[in-house]
Design a protein around this nucleic acid. Structure first.
Lengths: 205, 205, 205, 205
DNA sequence: AATGAATGAGGATTCATTCAT
DNA sequence: CATGAATGAATCCTCATTCAT
């Protein structure tokens, strides 16, 4: 026998999954509530027991997305391995995540920043606090403590995220890279060199 | 007295500018034809003398966008400078372009891939042929001819494009980088190291 | 321990009170069953143990309203006083009733006639039989038996009712009269003169 | 050849007429935009070229209604006749108006005060300034200048309006009065006695 | 008896697109 | 060519009502 909260949680999960499925397919605006409801196995009106407005789906998705993404980073960070290896694993796990939940990735990289909603700023902050910060730490460690300022690490973390997300978006990346493993290798090398290589000034000396 | 074609060209330019202005502000779906027409100083119906459907604005914008972007790359490629310097300048000019036409950048990076239209595949091909190829050549040269396969160069070119576009999208990038010059420096170093740095295996030897 | 009928009666009263409270505030259509249920301290579904359709609230309210209104008239009629005084007191008590149950008044004067329901005709008949007739008798007596036909008395009774109800409806009446006592005095004089004054023909003689 | 403004005016009139027809029949909330549009011989969307929200129909109707009603009062006021006769004619013409435009009357007396909209207060003020004031003057004159204060006249004017409107609302009034002429006679006598009859105090002397 | 989750009919509103002027 | 009034398909959202617990 389930408690009510179980059922409610269950419903939220259904809606979340249906939402990313439909939205990733057609984009936020072309995805209709009716479709999302149907995809969740629910009646049109039932959705509105769990959200107030269609827009509310965005934070719902974003929160779960950020959670999944941060979890992978934290996992990598907690490994007992050299910094560069941790960063490599972090990238690997992000790509794997986006490959597995490719639809989530599309929505995260696509609509979320673009749909204005009340929680836009909150989500940006959460994204920075829960995800970027963790990834920036890995970057910082891999680079050697002194190399990047805090801000720089955060920017690089965001660059890494964007490059990982590209895999889900881009037809061309898929075509030109020739497979996710190849893409992964390329990306890891690119990032690790970019992060840990000696500074240009140093090279010139 | 203007020839008809002048006027028509004029109109197209007006519409293009109005379209990116309004679409970057509100997103493709929330931007109404009425608003775009008004922004172009035209009546609502007049737009339809130049496009058949609202969707047609996407290729219209994309073509101009790709032109502007490729032009900068070609310019950089034609310079008489060392390969790494050319690549650096290419990145610099992309960023400058996106900073100047930030609205165009938002539309290019945002809606264009997401709005399905008849010309989607055509645009993808044009993007690769006219833009990515040119940038990939610069990457290839800067890396040393043997390092990357053609596909790898193309992927890296796309990564670079995405990282340049991030500047227009991201509130966090703007906040954390501390200004476009700083972002530019960071990005250039990151890319140049990623591209031209010695391979890891080599480093270990 | 209460008997079931006590509880049922209790529930009906709760619903009645909640209904007039909410309906007078927002109008019949904007008043939702959920709100009325909440105001009655009941769950949304529970209401439907006592009514079949939202519309059924109208006769429920109307019956209670007519009862309250008629009771006051009967009270006045049973007084041992001159006819004109009885009529004056009837008016006074109607106004007092509407002032006390201003929400009931608003609903009675407002929605009840406008919402079509199965019992519309029944209610009209009940209103005439239980309320208008009693008030018409007072009018008749106050006017002198011969002056008005039965129909005329009924019409005048309805006019009186409408004038009493105006107090609850009208912002302007409240503003211009300057208080319920003043309104009462004005109304009583107006009605008594209208009812008992000599006929125009008589005046001209 | 019509000017554009002619057509727009025409459309407004069509919409106004359709709106009172449908709204008087089914009430504001049950009247759908589709029905009103159809009744106006227009497509559903066309209505929204002339109003912003369904609610806007209320002030549209109210303004026309108040105009029609005030016009009749002004007409009566401008006659060369004794004050009591002017008031009698005013009542007569109101009743005739409401009988002719019975649907307008139903809407004026029914929905207008009840539907809250942005212009509620404005309309109340306009109603007082353009209609009640004029009618109150007639009342004042008929009563003899000294009898009623300004506020009292206004209240009586409102009572008169309500009594005239009753004719359109009430099944019972129609049934019991036996025809509009009879209702008119009854109402006129009632009002004139109420207004011009000697005060009670005077009677007692 | 009481409840509230589930439902879908129903309605307001928007907006791309057409077309007569 | 330019225009904007007219249109109705499309969609979000509300809410009365049902029903399993």
């Amino acid at each position: 026998m389930r408690r009510a909260s179980d059922t409610a949680q269950e419903r939220r999960r259904q809606i979340f999954e249906a939402a990313i499925a439909v939205i990733s397919e057609k984009g936020f605006h072309k995805a209709t509530i009716r479709e999302i409801a149907a995809a969740a196995g629910l009646g049109k009106g039932t959705i509105y027991q769990y959200i107030d407005k269609k827009e509310d789906l965005i934070p719902l998705i974003a929160e779960v997305g950020i959670s999944l993404m941060s979890a992978k980073i934290s996992e990598a960070a907690s490994l007992d391995a050299p910094p560069e290896e941790k960063l490599r694993i972090a990238i690997e796990s992000q790509l794997a995540l986006f490959d597995e939940h490719s639809r989530l990735a599309e929505v995260m990289g696509g609509e979320i920043e673009r749909i204005k909603h009340e929680d836009s700023e909150l989500l940006t902050r959460v994204f920075e606090e829960r995800y970027l910060n963790a990834l920036a730490s890995l970057v910082s460690e891999a680079a050697g403590r002194e190399r990047f300022s805090k801000g720089e690490s955060l920017v690089i973390a965001e660059l890494i995220a964007v490059m990982c997300l590209l895999w889900s978006h881009s037809v061309l990346a898929k075509k030109n890279a020739g497979g996710i493993e190849a893409y992964e290798t390329l990306l890891e090398e690119f990032v690790l060199r970019g992060v840990s290589g000696r500074r240009k000034e140093a090279e010139n000396s």
